[in-house]
């Protein structure tokens, strides 16, 4: 109790302002990635005050940074957006030697094209997970196992799908096209057709995590895709019983990386922050708050219980390998988004 009081007092003094702090860092990130549960410890130890602005989707990063620099020091786009940030010139190469724990990161993540350019790293892998599927337990006697279950006539008006270009990935896999980040025009057209066929069955395309939770809670939908670990735990807290599953057609995987905004004046605090996020404090911080898996396996192993370590698939390289990690679409991006927009316009 006393320690808790002390922690609160520290948090308050940290909030009280940059007057006490030696430096500051401003992050544009997802909710939970700068949660007071671990950020206040960082502020106290480093003397850097943290101010966070939250995004609702990966589409928010570019417009926010395009409006002009000098506001944010660090951003956390997902691996489908990191390349765009590099190509737009919004971020600068990382000094990986100044980041402790870099070697503990899963090699699969360090091998991603999306966070590198010309032999330099621009992103520090932080957290990851699957775009799993999810159903309401009380709505199924035989659990669904396939993406095709989201096209079932008898579930009409009870289906939801993420309002994102990911919908094209889902439909392509249903069509048997597994090269989802490298689809030809014909394959995209076929996916678009499948989505149009599904449209009358869809109750609502979900746009935010909270919206999907509301849809399940209000009994509007019984099956959808989801950010594995996140919405299901929010629903569990509300007493709604749902189960996540990886369909036979496989699932996409996402991975978020910290990136340093070009020419930030707060480099010292930014690197202190990166080091913290890759350490036990940050890695277990995000795992505990958001239910996401950690990118630094070594840190995760030392700060997680063995149950949590297993539940987040940290001990299971096959699981990670089975995920189709989002890849940058580069100049194909427009064709994908255009197809999805055309579905929504109908």
């Amino acid at each position: 109790m006393k320690t808790q009081y002390l922690v609160t007092a520290c948090a308050l003094s940290a909030l009280a302002g940059p007057v006490l702090a030696e430096g500051s860092v401003s992050v544009l990130t997802w909710e939970g990635y700068a949660d007071p549960s671990f950020i206040s410890t960082f502020e106290e130890q480093s003397g850097c005050s943290v101010s966070a602005t939250y995004v609702g989707s990966n589409d928010d990063f570019a417009p926010k940074l395009m409006a002009g620099g000098g506001i944010y020091d660090l951003i956390t786009p997902s691996i489908d957006t990191t390349k765009l940030m590099i190509d737009l010139g919004f971020v600068e190469p990382l000094d990986t030697a100044a980041i402790t724990g870099w070697d503990g990161i899963y090699p699969k993540f360090l091998g991603q094209d999306g966070i590198q350019k010309d032999g330099a790293y621009y992103g520090m892998p932080y957290s990851w997970g699957a775009i799993a599927f999810m159903y309401r337990d009380d709505a199924f006697t035989t659990p669904p196992t396939s993406i095709a279950d989201l096209w079932r006539e008898d579930l009409k008006g009870k289906i939801s799908l993420w309002d994102d270009k990911s919908a094209i990935y889902v439909a392509a896999r249903k069509n048997g096209d597994m090269n989802i980040y490298d689809l030809s025009d014909e394959q995209i057209a076929k996916a678009q057709e499948a989505l149009l066929e599904q449209k009358p069955l869809v109750r609502k395309y979900w746009a935010t995590a909270g919206e999907l939770v509301d849809l399940y809670k209000a009994g509007e939908v019984v099956i959808s895709n989801t950010w594995a670990g996140y919405q299901s735990s929010l629903l569990a807290a509300e007493g709604v019983k749902v189960t996540e599953f990886i369909p036979t057609e496989g699932a996409e995987g996402w991975m978020d990386s910290w990136m340093v905004v070009k020419d930030t004046p707060n480099k010292e605090c930014a690197y202190k922050f990166l080091n913290m996020q890759l350490s036990e404090l940050g890695q277990c911080g995000v795992a505990n708050v958001n239910g996401y898996s950690a990118a630094n396996a070594a840190a995760a192993k030392s700060c997680m219980t063995s149950e949590q370590f297993a539940a987040l698939h940290q001990d299971d390289p096959d699981y990670l390998d089975s995920l189709l990690i989002w890849a940058p679409l580069a100049d194909r991006f427009e064709t994908y988004t255009n197809a999805w927009n055309a579905v929504k316009a109908q």
Binding site: D60, A62, P63, K165, E334, T337, N338
Partner: peptide, 15 residues
């Protein structure tokens, strides 16, 4: 979807 939603998408997701 209404026109304003499409405009929002063009300024956001589609860039």
């Amino acid at each position: 979807n209404l026109v304003a939603n499409v405009i929002a998408t063009q300024f956001g997701a589609a860039l």
